[in-house]
C-alpha cells in the first residue's frame, strides 16, 4: 500500500496545485474587497460561477465548429467569461452595496445583502439556463486537453493541467504587479487604510472601489472557467462551496494580502487533495472523500483560533 501511495503522490500534488491556484484566483476577489471595504462579499462565488457559465456558452454557441485551436478557443472564452464576471461584480457593487455605503449602514446590513445577492444570482442563473433546457452545463470536451505529456515512467501531466497552471500563474502574477507596482494599486491600499483621508487627497474613492470589484470579478471569472475546465462542468450552485473555500484560503494566508491569498490558496488546495486522497486509503474508506469539505472547514476554524491574522497577515488595531 505504501508504494501505491508513493506512486500516487506526484499526481496528487499536481492536482492539489491546480486546485490551489484556482482557489488563489478566487481568493483574490475576496481579499481585495475585504481589504478595501472590510466586507465579506458572499456574492463573489456567484461571480465565479457566472464567469464559467458564460465561457461555456461562448464555447458551445460561439466557437464550436470554428476549427480554432482549442487553446485559442479557451483563451477567448476566458476573456469573455472574465469580462462578464468583472462587469457583473461592478454592477452588484453599484446596485446593492454602494447605497449602503453612502448611508453608512450598520455592518451587518451589507453582509446580509451580499448573502441575498448570492442566493438571488444562483436562482436567476438557474432560471435563465433552464429556459434553454439544462442548467447543469458540461464543459465542452476537447481531446487536446486530455492528451498526456509523459514526464517520467509514473508521472504524467495533461495538457489541461498544464494550461490551467500557466494561465492561473499568469493571472496571479499580473494581479500582484497591479496591486504592488501601479498607481491604481497604491490608491487601493490608500482607500483600504482610510477612505475619508483618501478622498481628501484627491482619490476618487467610488471609482477605486468599483475598480477593485472589477479586477476581483475578472479574476474570479477566469478562475471559474479554469475550475469548469478542470472538473468538466458548472452549474448555478457549484460556485458556493469553492467560494467558501477560497475565502478560507484568503483567511489562511492573511486577509487583505495578495501574497497571502496565493499562499493560502495553494496550501489549502494541496491539503484538500492530499488528505482527500489519502485519508480514505488509510481508513479503508470508513472516512471517504465526502469529508474533504469538513477538512477544509476544520482548517478554517483552526487557523482562526490559532492564527486569526493568517500566515502572512499583520495584526491590525481598530482606531478608537
Amino acid at each position: 500500500m505504501l508504494t501505491d501511495m508513493l506512486l500516487l503522490l506526484p499526481t496528487t500534488l499536481i492536482d492539489g496545485l491546480v486546485l490551489g491556484l484556482i482557489y488563489a484566483s478566487i481568493a483574490l476577489g475576496y481579499t481585495m474587497v475585504y481589504g478595501v471595504l472590510g466586507l465579506i462579499n458572499f456574492a463573489h462565488s456567484e461571480v465565479f460561477m457566472v464567469g464559467a457559465i458564460v465561457a461555456i456558452e461562448v464555447l458551445i454557441y460561439g466557437l464550436a465548429g470554428t476549427g480554432l485551436h482549442p487553446l485559442i478557443q479557451l483563451v477567448v472564452a476566458i476573456a469573455v467569461g472574465g469580462l462578464a464576471a468583472g462587469f457583473l461584480a461592478v454592477a452588484i457593487e453599484r446596485v446593492a452595496y454602494r447605497p449602503l455605503r453612502v448611508r453608512n449602514a450598520p455592518r451587518l446590513v451589507p453582509l446580509i445583502t451580499t448573502i441575498g445577492v448570492s442566493l438571488f444570482l444562483q436562482d436567476s442563473v438557474r432560471f435563465v439556463e433552464s429556459l434553454f433546457g439544462q442548467f447543469i452545463r458540461p464543459f465542452p470536451s476537447f481531446p487536446f486537453f486530455n492528451r498526456q505529456i509523459v514526464l517520467s515512467e509514473t508521472v504524467f501531466i495533461s495538457n489541461r493541467t498544464l494550461a490551467i497552471i500557466v494561465l492561473a500563474v499568469t493571472l496571479l502574477a499580473g494581479l500582484y504587479y497591479m496591486v504592488h507596482r501601479t498607481r491604481l494599486g497604491k490608491a487601493m491600499r490608500a482607500v483600504a487604510l482610510d477612505q475619508k483621508t483618501s478622498q481628501l487627497m484627491g482619490i476618487n474613492v467610488n471609482k477605486v472601489i468599483a475598480t477593485t470589484f472589477f479586477i476581483g470579478g475578472v479574476a474570479g471569472g477566469v478562475a471559474g472557467v479554469l475550475y469548469a475546465l478542470q472538473f468538466g462542468r458548472m452549474d448555478p450552485f457549484s460556485g458556493f462551496i469553492p467560494g467558501i473555500k477560497a475565502f478560507t484560503a484568503a483567511v489562511l494566508g492573511g486577509i487583505g494580502s495578495v501574497e497571502g491569498a496565493v499562499l493560502g490558496g495553494v496550501l489549502l488546495g494541496i491539503l484538500e487533495v492530499v488528505l482527500g486522497t489519502y485519508i480514505p486509503m488509510w481508513t479503508n474508506n470508513a472516512i471517504g472523500t465526502e469529508y474533504k469539505d469538513i477538512i477544509a472547514f476544520s482548517i478554517l476554524i483552526l487557523i482562526l483560533i490559532f492564527r486569526p491574522n493568517g500566515l502572512v497577515g499583520r495584526a491590525y488595531a481598530e482606531k478608537v
Binding site: 446590513v109 446580509i112 445583502t113 441575498g116 442566493l119 438571488f120 444562483q122 432560471f127
Partner: peptide
C-alpha cells in the same frame, strides 16, 4: 433561494 435572496436584498436596502 430566489425568494430568500429578494427578501434579504430588498429589506436591507
Amino acid at each position: 433561494r430566489l425568494i430568500f435572496g429578494i427578501i434579504l436584498i430588498i429589506m436591507m436596502l
